[in-house]
Design a protein around this nucleic acid. Structure first.
Lengths: 224, 224
DNA sequence: ACAAAAGTGTTCGATATACACCCATGT
DNA sequence: ACATGGGTGTATATCGAACACTTTTGT
């Protein structure tokens, strides 16, 4: 068998809802190739770590956050995707709660949130990766509970609906949305309300993980 | 940045319906590690080929078939998954029509179909890969048209139903199944019938690709 | 009183499920 | 005539989509 002179990276599409928009975290490249361009955070897989560990490490280095939803997206391996040589990347996507503050630019890299609808020119094939990540996120939103990963622990139903609306990029009907969430049976209402400026206070809810497990057991979700 | 001393393979889970069962093609390893064990066909990615090209090449080498449904499954990169060192594999799955004959054991490798329900002990983490492939195949079956890829060009509705039944491992109602297929609007009835032994001849159908494209455009499918 | 967001039910069409008998053919 | 698989319709339950007004609060 032939040896393959290949290097492997992980790249992580980091989504968050900020300022009522779906945003992704990008870093500005300091070196060639694509110096000055924006890129998805990532880096080489180290010798003794799994792909997921590598993704978590990069995520920690880039943002300082630890507890996030992380899912493998797809592997991209066009021979010409990196001008430096043969580099295959395993792309992940991560969801960060809008409450989580990032430790800014830890390894002296310029990092910045961009609304998905206003992406700058990107390095490598990162535009393609981002677009596929959005497709997956939208699909997952419809048949799983990933949406909750983008919210803080306590949230109102309007918060939740806004998450769905900005990701799917369409208005949803409030009554239908609430009924659906209610039927899912994974929301625990709290005895807490939150005043949002000048109007009626909104009841807060918590995502009920253990009811969610039953859904998982019914095979609605995925094994990794 | 650190170099990663990694090699990359593609492995292909090859599904087919044979003898009214879902089967996978395995090859017997001739060399260590895991000499004598059965394994999913695969091999190293070459310098100038994409991941998909590598998968297609392995598929051709292993089976002689060219026109198949091929989809990337998942990348597996546990540091200890291969005793020879760091090998990351990008797993694909392929669907082969039951009509397609394989060029047998071309590169002097012993290849054999195994019913999914009677898998032998497998090399590496290939058992895990196979199990995930089945989960994906089942999911895809429900919201896409991959099922047709397992049939020859002309098929009866009973043939089609059998595909669904053996993959999902449950009996389906004939009338409901036919109505659903009819509503999908992707079957073209032919003026041809086939006698199956001693009973009434079954009408044959053809999968209508161009109607299918409309479904694809509606975003029901995936980009790769 | 009014502005702003929270909250709440009903109707309708589409889709999924359950269920049983007749038909065409070869032996 | 019978054994074998092919073919067909109806009734019910469930789910998603459309749609408008009242409530609570701060100013």
């Amino acid at each position: 068998m032939e040896r393959s002179a290949v290097r492997v990276t992980v790249d992580i599409v980091i989504f968050s809802i900020r300022e009522d928009a779906l945003q992704v975290l990008l870093i500005r490249r300091k070196y060639d190739p694509f110096r000055g361009r924006w890129a998805i955070p990532g880096g080489f897989v180290l010798d003794r770590e799994s792909l997921e560990q590598a993704a978590l490490r990069e995520l920690r280095e880039e943002t300082g956050v630890e507890d996030v939803y992380l899912e493998q997206l797809y592997s991209f391996g066009d021979p010409d995707r990196d001008p430096r040589g043969r580099v295959i990347t395993v792309a992940y996507f991560a969801l960060i709660s809008s409450a989580q503050a990032l430790r800014p630019g830890t390894d002296a890299e310029e990092a910045q949130w961009f609304p998905f609808s206003k992406l700058p020119p990107l390095a490598f094939d990162h535009r393609k990766i981002l677009e596929y990540a959005l497709v997956r996120l939208r699909n997952k939103l419809e048949y799983t509970t990933v949406g909750f990963q983008l919210l803080p622990e306590k949230f109102s139903l309007s918060d939740l609906q806004r998450v769905y609306e900005v990701i799917l990029d369409k208005k949803l009907d409030k009554r239908n949305f609430r009924r659906k969430m209610d039927l899912l049976g994974i929301l625990r209402p709290l005895r807490e309300w939150r005043r949002q400026g000048v109007s009626r206070p909104a009841r807060l809810y918590r995502f009920s993980a253990h009811r969610f497990e039953r859904l998982r057991d019914k095979g609605i979700l995925f094994p990794f």
